[in-house]
Amino acid sequence: MALKARQILTLLSEWPHRGVGSDEEMEAREMLMAHLTGEIGVEVAEEGFFTPRSYLPFFWAIALSQCFFIAFSGYGSLVMAAGGLMVLISHMRFFDWRVTRPIWLLARTTTANLVAKKGAGRRLIILMAHIDSAPASFAYRPEQVPHFKTSVYLSTGIISLGFLVPLASLSGLDVPWFIKAPIILLTIAQVVMASLDFWRFGYTPGANDNLTGVAAATEVASRLWAKMPEGAEVRLVITTAEEAGMLGAQHYWEQHHEELKARDTHVLNFDTVGFGQLSFVLESGGFTPVYYDGALPHAAHALTKLNKRFAGVKEAKHHVGDFDSVWFCRDGISSLTIAAYDENGMMPYIHTMEDRAEHLDLDVMDEAVAFGEAIIRTLPKR
């Protein structure tokens, strides 16, 4: 009997949140592991790593570093300008959803990805979803979400002053303190705004983002394990630290890179599939776009055209943040994310304390399960 998404959702909803590295996250993961060990022939393991508890320590490190370089721009201007440039590049890489090494310097918390697998063969099918819940965020309040990209660009402009002010000093145009002081205050103010809701509320319940994805990915994996695709291994990878910068998926990709590239690998990610119009994402990205192409997107597209049941599933462009699948897509690995959006192309309630179970439409989650399984079974044989 396959595990059911609704059952998994109910079990994991017992915890008020699943913040990265928290007891709640560990207990929820252990509960899921206990149920996966009952699957016949399935190997279950954890892959531990160190991580920051959210993206906020990185934001604070970026802001305080730039304040330092601005404040002491008149002393060793070349060193200050070089430091400001490196910090600016790190900021831009983070918001372009690329590997940003400095964030790992802030890793102080132990956590783990959960991996369950069955089967063997050259083809590797990975069902992925992140279990951690997000810090409450001012930027995701309903009135702020439409301006998310604008706020990122404004933030980048402010952070760039940590390079431009020392550069001006290096050029002989020393910036006076009556200009430096407001810049430093503005730099601190923006990171205070980013932290404000987390200080007030902590981690969100994360029902839609992303208990629905974990539940859907688990049921799809269970269905496939019950009737295995020929010549394939089916692997369920429940990541964490997605809300710290998709670090759990990045860690998994880096640790398994050689294997993933050597095999016929397909990564199907489920993220926020509990409300709105079920969709598959063909474009995401920050400053530069990420385009999803290959076997999984092609199979999803074919299903919506050839199978009447999935005619209502839409192609989507993701506008806010990104998904765990980004590492695999950029590496040329067949990958795709299934998500759901409202009529405005947004994901309501996420990263807020309103992301609770009562706001879910479980029929959308069930549709994500059926669509995900159908995509995998539609993949052409090689």
Rank of each mutant, 00 (worst) to 15 (best):
Q7T: 09
I8C: 01
T10E: 13
P16N: 13
G19Y: 08
V20I: 15
E27Y: 14
L32V: 12
A34G: 15
G41K: 10
F50Y: 15
F50V: 12
P52N: 11
P52A: 12
W60I: 10
A61Y: 13
S65I: 10
F69W: 14
A71E: 10
S73N: 13
Y75V: 15
L78E: 14
V79W: 15
I89Q: 10
I89M: 12
H91S: 07
F94H: 11
V99C: 03
A107G: 15
T109H: 15
K118A: 14
K118H: 13
A120L: 10
A120I: 11
G121C: 06
R123Y: 04
R123G: 03
I131F: 14
D132G: 13
A134W: 06
A136S: 14
S137Y: 04
F148C: 05
F148I: 03
V152T: 09
Y153G: 00
S160P: 05
S169F: 00
S169N: 06
G172H: 07
F178V: 05
A181R: 00
A181P: 01
A181F: 12
P182I: 10
I188E: 04
V191E: 12
D197M: 13
W199Q: 03
F201K: 13
T204I: 04
G206S: 09
N208H: 08
N210I: 09
T212W: 04
A215M: 06
R223W: 02
E230R: 09
E233D: 03
V237P: 06
T240D: 09
A241V: 04
E242K: 09
E243D: 15
E243L: 11
M246Y: 07
W253D: 07
E254H: 08
H257L: 05
H257M: 02
E259A: 02
E259I: 03
E259F: 03
R263P: 03
H266M: 08
V267M: 04
T272K: 08
F275N: 09
F275I: 03
F275G: 00
G276C: 08
S279H: 04
L282Y: 00
S284W: 05
Y292C: 00
Y292L: 00
L296C: 00
T304H: 00
T304C: 01
K308F: 01
R309P: 05
R309I: 06
F310I: 04
V313H: 01
K314E: 02
E315L: 00
E315N: 00
A316N: 00
A316D: 01
D322M: 02
F323P: 00
W327C: 04
W327M: 05
A339T: 14
Y341L: 11
E343C: 01
G345C: 08
I350T: 11
A357Y: 13
H359L: 12
D366I: 06
E367F: 06
A368Q: 04
V369Q: 03
A370D: 15
G372H: 09
E373G: 08
R377Y: 04
R377A: 03
T378A: 13
P380Y: 02
